[in-house]
Amino acid sequence: MSRLLKVYLRNIFKQKGYYVCTGISLLIGVIIPFIISLFIKSTDTITLASRIVDSFKVDIIIVIFVTLFVCSDFTDGTAKNFIARGYSRRQILYGKYLASLIAVGVYFLGCLAFTLAFFAKDGLNFTISDLYMILAAIATAVASTGLYVIVANTAEKVSTGIAVNIIMFSFFSLLLEGLTTLLKLNINLSNYWITGLTGLMGEKAVLVDLFKVIGIAAVYLVLLFEISNFIIKKKEVK
């Protein structure tokens, strides 16, 4: 498994798409807001920074580089080289997931470092609530990355993977929000969808909410991997 992870990490970190996506993300999330902030003087830079860090959860960026990485095995036809040497479909899926998680983590850290470098010159006023919020975002990212990897691995094609991961799941989120309004529910259903779990954290994040997010994310992950293992178990590898 370590050899598999090593190869996948090389694949993802030597992929141009990863750096293009990160670059775009930094441009939209840090550089442009920084330029704007030079003209519009804000006293609450940390609030602005945290809003920007939040904007890095731009799922689209993650979806694109994760899908490009996961599907490259199928588009290059290299997946069969793994299977034919005795690696199981399950090991391959977990390998891709772990490599994607590491890449997403590096992406987050990179974005965070840039944000702090640009916006936190006057020091940080970090509360426990902020920490809970970040941990909830990490739990959501861990679960949603699992979803993106599984969808891309099942779709095998970049276009299908991106289409399903972005369009279908965005539509699903909207649908849940629509249902909430239509049924006049007290809870927002879209906050329970895998990509929107941070919505469960209130204005002032508390520990109970964080546990709730982590618990739901874990249930999603287990369910997704069980379903995926069932689907890929007998799947043909081209």
């Binding site: 694949n11 490259s72 290059d76 036809g77 290299t78 997946a79 069969k80 080289n81 034919a84 040497r85 005795g86 690696y87 199981s88």
Partner: peptide, 18 residues
């Protein structure tokens, strides 16, 4: 195959290459 995979080399259809 899972037990001896590394001892089996193969080239099936178009080669799988990066």
């Amino acid at each position: 195959l899972q037990e001896v995979g590394l001892k089996v080399g193969s080239l099936i259809e178009a080669p799988g290459i990066y």
